[in-house]
């Protein structure tokens, strides 16, 4: 049985959910609203993988300061994800390289995957939702 504070659809089914973040933050709302779905899915006790690829890696930049554009800084939420039992965070090397970034530029610990590793991870999912 799930904990009392856990959402439960009653089925007891645990699926592999991948959230594929491919967009930069702030320019559009997808990164912020996508993160809300990730948090809810974890509350349903599903097997969640969170992937940042293409411009999605920009969501994880250290030193984000949104005061000047007067929008919410949700990048801090990524650092709280382990509190939601979301521990599988991935970025791909190709996307980092294409943006002149390394793991050290990111606010959270991530696993850096090659294209082949990313392909295999994606293939083994039950549900893939891209934002």
């Amino acid at each position: 049985m799930s904990d009392m504070d856990m959402e439960d659809d009653g089925s007891g089914i645990v699926k592999k959910f991948m959230f594929l973040n491919r967009k930069a933050p702030h320019g559009t709302v997808y990164a912020l609203e996508g993160l809300e779905v990730v948090l809810i899915t974890a509350a349903f006790d599903q097997d969640v993988s969170l992937v940042f690829t293409d411009d999605g890696v920009y969501q994880l930049m250290k030193g984000i300061d949104t005061k000047g554009i007067e929008v919410k800084d949700f990048s801090k939420t990524y650092r709280a994800l382990d509190g939601y039992d979301i521990e599988k965070l991935y970025v791909d090397q190709t996307s980092l390289d294409a943006r002149g970034l390394t793991e050290d530029d990111l606010i959270v610990d991530v696993s850096v995957l090659s294209d082949d590793e990313m392909k295999n991870l994606m293939d083994e999912q039950d549900v893939v939702i891209s934002f």
Partner: peptide, 8 residues
């Protein structure tokens, strides 16, 4: 196909 991905 057992799963699908929309590249939005």
């Amino acid at each position: 196909h057992r799963n699908c991905q929309s590249w939005l």
